[in-house]
């Protein structure tokens, strides 16, 4: 019985997905009848695999933008978050500024990104950095603020007596589950920013760049194909980080 149960586990999920895809194809083909309003599934699939290596370059460049933004966000977010969480004065200094900057939508920074940095990879990275920074900051801050005092005292009586060592050996590992959770949220937000950040021609390649290009050329099946790629990559990254998050909360990192 258990065996049968396992076999049937995903039956509903898979039929649901298949029904959705078939319905898409039928609706697009026989109801909408317009490749611009709603491209069919089949022409989308053709667009997905018909472009040759270009898709790979587009994915690569978008990943480059994400990595620039994300690594900056991780570096600076953890640094400022830990200072604000560890030192009482740190949160009093940082809080007013962060509360002021946090509500500004990342995309509102695009004009200044272009003026300050120019039309290049770094400027796309900067927009993604703005989006990815705050979740990491907030989570690192929460983690550092909530280090159990008994663990700090235990470390002190074991000879771990200066601030740097306490941060490295106690506060950081104790906050790690929070930080990894923050990074997972940041990857999601950062990925959402990619499309908009690449909107203004910061690079020749890029999923966002070409999403807009194909739109301008009215090749909507390619637009749809790129949307699907964006979704699948987002999903894959989220799954990987969920896995890391589970490990971090178990202390296995």
């Amino acid at each position: 019985m258990g065996h049968k149960f396992r076999e049937r586990k995903y039956v509903i999920e898979i039929s649901s997905l298949v029904t959705f895809l078939v319905a898409w194809e039928l609706v697009a083909r026989f109801l909408i009848k317009s490749e611009i309003k709603l491209p069919t599934l089949s022409s989308t699939i053709l667009a997905l695999f018909g472009g040759g290596y270009k898709l790979i370059f587009d994915i690569g460049i978008s990943m480059l933008h994400l990595s620039i933004g994300l690594s900056l966000a991780i570096l600076i977010g953890i640094l400022i978050g830990s200072l604000m969480g560890w030192f009482k004065i740190g949160s009093r200094i940082g809080d007013p500024i962060m509360e002021l900057l946090r509500p500004i939508p990342p995309l509102a920074w695009i004009p200044f990104a272009i003026i300050w940095i120019g039309l290049n990879h770094q400027s796309a990275g900067f927009i993604i950095f703005i989006g990815a920074f705050f979740p990491i900051l907030t989570n690192t801050y929460t983690g550092f603020k909530n280090v159990p005092p008994i663990l700090i005292e235990s470390a002190k009586v074991l000879g771990c007596n200066n601030g740097t060592k306490l941060i490295r050996h106690v506060a950081l590992p104790s906050s790690l589950p929070f930080i990894v959770a923050g990074i997972r949220i940041s990857v999601g937000v950062g990925w959402m920013c990619v499309v908009a950040a690449e909107m203004f021609g910061v690079s020749y390649y890029g999923l966002g760049t070409w999403l807009w290009q194909y739109y301008a050329l009215h090749q909507m099946n390619k637009v749809m194909a790129y949307m699907i790629v964006l979704g699948l990559i987002g999903l894959a990254m989220d799954r990987c980080l969920r896995f890391l998050e589970r490990r971090a909360s178990k202390g296995e990192m």
Binding site: I150, E153, S154, V157, L158, G159, N161, P173, L176
Partner: peptide, 18 residues
């Protein structure tokens, strides 16, 4: 100040969970 020449066992559990 605290020093390892005075080892302490706390009332609550105090191991590093990670």
């Amino acid at each position: 100040g605290p020093s390892p020449d005075r080892g302490m066992i706390f009332q609550e559990y105090s191991l590093f969970p990670w």
